[in-house]
């Protein structure tokens, strides 16, 4: 009984496997790849541009994530509640924090797999004789992965709020779209009409976009990653609070 494996790893393995045990994973991966491919090649016309700049490819990631990430996260806790397995999971001998981290990391790893499969895009650039900037590619991929994690953490939290996955999905999309666009002029202008300037500046400082943009420019700034990490920690803490409250409610 004392050769305890790491509980986070145990939860992580089960959760990640559960994606691939059902058709969900394959449907998601195919849709994700088709969507990024379509937007990159047909809308941004990456190929016709004849340049090896990966910007048109990364540009679309936040918008694909906007739908894709909540679709991955919505089941995380809502499904456990609906089927009652939450009771099973939370009475096993590990802490709530370990369960939350294990499940979150599994979903993030799944997003990482999806993102990893898009490496065919830069690969095709190289095969076609282009020389994409390795630094930009690296920081772009890291930024994209960080952004996915932050959006996922939001979806993780919203999936604890209801046992209905649709509610969780819609809430996550709304929160995500707000945080993606919070720094965007049309939104800040709208906010400026109802809120004092300081509040507008604070809200727009929460936006994902400036941090993601700096990654796309090939700048590996620790502050951007600290930002994504702090969003993740904050949302997972909120997840913990909601689940803990439900226990003692």
């Amino acid at each position: 009984m004392d050769t305890a494996a790491c509980p986070v790893k145990t939860v992580f393995k089960r959760e990640l496997r559960s994606y691939f045990d059902s058709p969900i994973a394959y449907v998601f991966l195919v849709v994700f790849l088709m969507l990024t491919g379509f937007l990159t090649f047909s809308v941004s016309r990456l190929y016709e541009k004849g340049s090896a700049d990966p910007w048109p490819f990364f540009f679309w990631h936040p918008w694909v994530y906007l739908i894709f990430v909540p679709a991955v996260s919505m089941r995380l806790w809502a499904e456990e509640r609906r089927t009652g397995t939450l009771e099973l999971l939370l009475t096993l001998p590990f802490t709530l924090t370990q369960a939350i981290i294990g499940k979150f990391l599994a979903a993030w790893a799944f997003l990482g797999i999806a993102l990893g499969l898009t490496l065919t895009v830069p690969l095709s650039m190289v095969l076609l004789g282009g020389h994409p900037d390795a630094g930009v590619l690296l920081s772009g991929y890291l930024g994209s992965f960080g952004l996915a994690g932050a959006l996922l953490a939001i979806g993780t939290w919203t999936s604890t709020l209801s046992r209905n996955q649709v509610v969780s999905f819609v809430l996550a999309v709304m929160l995500s779209v707000f945080l993606l666009l919070a720094g965007w002029p049309p939104i800040t202008d709208l906010l400026a009409r109802v809120a004092p300037p300081l509040a507008v500046r604070i809200i727009s400082a929460f936006s994902f976009m400036p941090h993601y943009d700096s990654c796309l420019r090939g700048v590996l700034d620790l502050r951007d990653f600290a930002y994504f990490a702090s969003v993740i920690v904050f949302m997972l803490t909120a997840t913990h609070i909601v689940l803990e409250n439900r226990k003692s409610a």
Binding site: T3, A4, V11, K13, R14, S18, T83, E87, L88, P93
Partner: peptide
Amino acid sequence: PVYDDMTVLGFLRFIAEARGLSG
């Protein structure tokens, strides 16, 4: 309640691992 999408063996292996019983 049980994880429906798992096989019986997969589910029980998960529980064994969660209970710190490996190998």
